[in-house]
Simulated scan of single mutants.
Amino acid sequence: MQAIKVKQSGGLETIFVDNIEQASSPKKGEITVRIHAGSLNYHDYLVAAGHLKTDSDRVLLSDGAGVVEQVGEGVTEFKVGDHVVSTFFPQWLSGEVVPSAGDFHQTPGDGTDGYAMESVTRPVEAFTHAPAGWSHAEAATITTAGLTAWRALVADGKLKAGDTILTLGTGGVSIAALQIGKMFGANVIITSSSDDKLAKAKALGADATINYREHPDWAREVMEITNGLGAKHILELGGPGTLEQSIKAAAVGGHISLIGVMSGLSGQVPTGLLMMKQVRLQGLLVGTRRQQQDYVKALEMNDFRPVIDKSFKYQQLAEAFEYQTNGAHFGKICVEW
């Protein structure tokens, strides 16, 4: 069978297709899954481009969705034919953050082999059921981007109807946040440098949009939109380059989820303003298996479907990453066999 790998030196030019042995038969507590689709995340790009070092010939991608082909002894949660989707931290089942979820050593596509292969055999904890009736590509979007938004807003943020959400950009996390916000009856503000993308966000239900290129002091726009109250929940995807604006845009007692580092890894934080506003600033890496199961239940009870910008063949993974880096996409980029 085929697997898509990257050399240890990294760089999209080092991605290659390898022919490997079929997945082994499942042992006790394991399942074998035929992978049909995956989705791309910024973390996947960092590994593929060599910015995050991994072992040579690492199988890429942390997200994968497919069909159970075999179940091992003692497995009762899944049966042959079930549609499933992978988990980002298979070792973090529920509850407080476990030490091993503080890095990527057990994360598929980074510390261990990922899901860019035709078939895998993994412990049952490596998967949850996929949302009923979803395509494999749709299901593959929830493992990282969707679950990150769910944890930020619901599990950690305790989102309520009437709350105001601010999310930066129109990538997979932001669009998932927009849809989750609408599920809960929240008001959603979304930013972008593209009026076309902002129009698409409006069509999906965004209550207000801000072109940050036209309004570099976009925190002022947020305060105006919210009548001086600010946003209760902020998904901070830019990092240190945008964090000051996010703190300015936050409501007193607000919650900022620091998710992305697109503008760098370090920078100044206006600690005085953070203190005066009594804002909770929380670093966040995806979520637990239990949170993913809760998210799947919520998705099944609503009509929202993920926005997939474009789908590539797995053999075109390098091309898919190049498309990701140009920033033209709206929503998720997927790959399928």
Rank of each mutant, 00 (worst) to 15 (best):
I256K: 09
S94L: 00
A203L: 11
T112S: 13
V85W: 00
G50E: 12
N41F: 01
L198I: 11
I35T: 09
T170Q: 08
T209K: 10
A318C: 06
A116Q: 06
V33S: 07
L273K: 15
H233N: 09
A139V: 02
A37R: 02
T112E: 15
D207W: 00
H83M: 14
G239P: 04
V6T: 06
A145P: 00
V173Q: 05
V80Q: 06
K182F: 02
K202V: 01
V68W: 02
H255E: 08
G205R: 13
I31P: 00
V80K: 03
D309K: 10
R122P: 02
E138D: 11
S135C: 04
G253I: 01
Y42F: 15
F16V: 12
L178E: 10
V296H: 01
F312Q: 14
L153T: 11
L168Q: 15
E138W: 00
F89T: 11
R305H: 12
V84P: 01
F16C: 09
S194V: 03
G50H: 04
G241Q: 11
K27V: 12
A145G: 06
N302P: 00
R151M: 01
V279N: 14
E214T: 15
T14Q: 08
A126V: 02
T54W: 01
S266E: 13
G11F: 09
S119R: 05
W150P: 05
A155Y: 09
G10N: 10
Q315Y: 02
S100Y: 04
I180A: 11
N326L: 07
T76A: 13
G66D: 04
K158I: 08
V279T: 14
F89V: 09
T191Y: 07
Q179H: 12
A199G: 15
T325Q: 12
Q245N: 13
K248I: 07
L204P: 08
G260H: 09
L299Y: 03
G228Y: 14
I210V: 08
Q22S: 14
A201F: 04
I234W: 00
K197L: 01
N211V: 13
L159S: 07
K197M: 00
H43Y: 10
P123R: 07
T226P: 03
A328C: 10
L273F: 05
S86N: 04
Q106A: 04
F330C: 04
Q278G: 11
N19T: 13
M117I: 14
